[in-house]
């Protein structure tokens, strides 16, 4: 009894209390940085609520129209002065389970829950106010290629070598206009934000002779392939558009319209 009373004395109680505070504090310290990881959506909302009404870019690719000419890839390579092996928008030849063949251009999907963004150690990969995932090649990217391991769509390219000699040698690259690319860093499709800023269409949209690629804005709810303008939500709904590997939970901003009778999950 005496022992127990002694152990409940003031010094012991305060020690226990300070231990509790210490533990809680430590837990808080450890947990605090995890909040943005655990709730990336919450942050995104805070972010977009701050600015004025903004565009939120999205893309629709009509697979019924694509004939696999790869003009989009070429236009992209010219626009960003990329070597021929770089396919920021890559046209896959797909044979579905029923043996039907079709083409599927794959740009970066600008995922709303982007795996590449989450794993980047330096924050070189970031999302701009309009929902486009960009890479800071100039200062931050260290070339660890963790993002390439993380991207489930293979949308990223690493600059193993220097890009071809630039056509405009005096332009300094920025995340919004990453031309020329920088050796040792990772690059990817960025929805041509340097063009859309000026009201121009992305290079691939403009180059597509089949008018298969639509660039759209989720806020204004419109999309255009440069020839016709559609109401984005209706267009997606009425054509049963799907998002590639949607089950991964990445929430891509690129929609596909299937049309050759192929299975929707490709």
């Amino acid at each position: 009894m005496g022992q127990r009373e002694g152990s409940d004395g003031p010094s012991d109680r305060s020690r226990r209390r300070s231990l509790q505070i210490l533990l809680a504090g430590t837990a808080g310290l450890v947990a605090a940085p995890l909040v943005p990881i655990a709730f990336p959506e919450a942050q995104a909302h805070v972010h977009s609520a701050q600015g004025k009404k903004q565009r939120q870019w999205a893309m629709v690719i009509d697979l019924r129209k694509c004939d696999g000419c790869r003009k989009c890839t070429e236009a992209c390579q010219t626009e960003h002065e990329l070597p021929k092996s770089f396919e920021w928008i890559k046209v896959f030849e797909v044979k579905d389970k029923q043996g039907r063949e079709y083409f599927m251009p794959r740009p970066c999907f600008q995922c709303e829950s982007a795996p590449c963004l989450r794993v980047c150690p330096t924050g070189a990969t970031f999302r701009d106010d309009e929902g486009v995932v960009l890479v800071d090649q100039v200062y931050k990217c260290i070339g660890c290629r963790m993002c390439m391991a993380a991207c489930p769509y293979g949308a990223r390219s690493f600059n193993y070598a220097d890009p071809p000699t630039p056509a405009h040698p005096f332009v300094n690259p920025t995340p919004q206009h990453p031309v020329p690319q920088i050796k040792g860093t990772v690059g990817k499709c960025m929805f041509c934000v340097h063009r859309t800023e000026d009201g121009k269409l992305p290079a691939c949209v403009e180059a597509c002779g089949m008018e298969a690629i639509y660039i759209g804005d989720l806020v204004e709810d419109v999309a255009t392939n440069g020839h016709e303008t559609v109401r984005l939500s209706t267009f997606i709904r009425e054509n049963d558009a799907f998002r590639y590997k949607e089950e991964l939970g990445t929430a891509p901003r690129v929609y596909y319209i299937a049309g050759h009778g192929q299975l929707l999950d490709a």
């Binding site: 943005p36 794993v119 980047c120 070189a124 931050k140």
Partner: peptide, 15 residues
């Protein structure tokens, strides 16, 4: 740029 990992450290990254 290795020190960027410390300078701009993102706690969410496995790196």
């Amino acid at each position: 740029r290795f020190l960027n990992v410390i300078r701009y450290a993102q706690v969410g990254s496995p790196i």
